[in-house]
Design a protein around this nucleic acid. Structure first.
Lengths: 132, 132
DNA sequence: CTAGACCTTGACGCCGACGTCAAGGCAACA
DNA sequence: TGTTGCCTTGACGTCGGCGTCAAGGTCTAG
């Protein structure tokens, strides 16, 4: 199939596919006229990339999965490097959620404080130091 | 005080202060030689901006707080517009955390699945469809 | 008088993941 | 044969929040 069909079947733009190729994530054979030609392997490869991107993975983080698939493994996460990326992402998510929880608490405390100042008379003297 | 002192006292670069000014967040009087001159009002203003940025607010989101302070209110969050930004940020954080939780679960499920495939023999037939 | 520290504006660079446009080649159909 | 639709490469634009450099003006201490 050519680039237009691959784009349509994967839901990405042709520009995106060329971009993946420029990053070394996607390879293409060429027809005699210079057109890119793809097979089903590339289709699955792009689907793998998109699935990970939907999870918030950066393109570079999908590379081990891509390499794994291209090495002939049945799934992109059949290789140790891919699993390391999974683990790193879990740690990253945990750190981000911790930070978000902390920020959320402080913002909410500020909101409550400011609201009470507008309605009620004086600011309550108690400290709003909640712990998760 | 001049820009270098304000930068040092707020912990930001002079470039950053000039950038704030270009965005209309910061104003400056000028000395006869053209140098920017700031007072304590601007100091508090920059501190307000940085405090919000540390919470992950974009510069544009700090504008209501800045306007509020410049209007003479005692705090940046003494005005309704600022409280709206607080509320919007809380909603944004909640949505992001919901999304992160979902992604986290799916990534962890993939990890467990892939790990068990590598160690144990066959993939368990059960579906890992956890609900929050 | 000069070195050095401070200040000015202007402009380009960076990151990530592409969007969009330009200028042209190739293929198929009326 | 001409039009339409696909394809090619190349290059600039986008967004946010600045970093960094260039080329110059200003002020102060020695």
């Amino acid at each position: 199939m050519r680039i237009g069909e691959l784009a349509e079947r994967t839901g990405v733009s042709t520009r995106t596919l060329r971009y993946y190729e420029s990053r070394g994530l996607l390879e293409s054979r060429r027809a005699v006229n210079g057109y890119r030609v793809y097979g089903d392997g590339e289709l699955r490869l792009v689907q793998q990339i998109r699935a990970l991107q939907d999870f918030g993975f950066e393109l570079e983080e999908t590379r081990p999965f891509v390499d794994c698939l291209r090495a002939g493994h049945p799934a992109g996460d059949s290789c140790p490097d891919s699993l390391d990326v999974y683990r790193g992402k879990l740690a990253e998510i945990d750190a981000l959620m911790d930070r978000l929880r902390a920020v959320r608490m402080r913002v909410e405390a500020e909101l409550v404080r400011a609201e009470s100042r507008r309605q009620g008379a004086s600011v309550p003297r108690c400290e709003l130091e909640g712990r998760t």
